[in-house]
């Protein structure tokens, strides 16, 4: 027998069961019972593999970070729309080498993902803490080069940011 953390097993079952209910949309005893049984089975089969520990506080802070990111996404989308529709096509694309101070790999992942999600900047290559960012123009890349995005993410992960 594998060592099974009962708390973790419960969490996985709950998540899978939530997914089941959402996708099936039937609330009779048969479907709910079958869903519960199957989610428990899947959670139990998978319980031995994952070294992953749930970090609810972190997830909560990431969730609170999302509205800010979404606002920036909308703003830069409008900026990019203006660039594309301008008859003169005033773009100044460039590759920027950006060295991040974030220590945790998942923080760097979030940074790279946020950069790519924001229209006008894309992470082209990640090597440890060095990101290669392609930007449409200086306005789009401002959040990255000024370190504002990184400072936000450092806050989310509770890392001290030397720049802020």
């Amino acid at each position: 027998m594998r060592p099974v953390s009962s708390q973790f097993l419960f969490l996985k079952t709950a998540a899978l069961f939530g997914m089941w209910v959402m996708l099936s949309g039937r609330f009779d005893l048969f479907h709910l019972g079958l869903g519960l049984l199957l989610s428990f089975l899947v959670a139990w089969i998978n319980s031995g593999h994952s070294p992953f520990v749930p970090r609810f506080q972190l997830w909560g802070r990431i969730f609170l970070f999302l509205p800010w990111l979404f606002l920036r996404i909308v703003q830069s989308s409008l900026h990019l729309t203006k660039l594309i529709l301008d008859p003169r096509l005033p773009i100044h694309p460039r590759l920027i080498r950006y060295e991040s101070k974030l220590k945790e790999p998942s923080a760097v992942v979030l940074l790279g993902n946020s950069i790519t999600l924001t229209p006008g900047t894309i992470t082209a290559e990640v090597n440890g803490q060095v990101l290669l960012v392609h930007a449409m123009d200086d306005v789009s890349s401002e959040d990255v080069t000024s370190g504002r995005l990184e400072a936000k993410i450092a806050q989310v992960f509770g890392e001290r940011d030397s720049r802020a």
């Binding site: 989308s77 694309p93 790519t116 229209p119 900047t121 894309i122 392609h134 449409m136």
Partner: peptide
């Protein structure tokens, strides 16, 4: 259609999902 290369074009594509 308008932008010149792969890099800038992928910026345009990211508009589709973001907004």
């Amino acid at each position: 259609i308008r932008l010149p290369d792969v890099f800038t074009r992928s910026h345009a594509v990211s508009l589709t999902d973001s907004l």
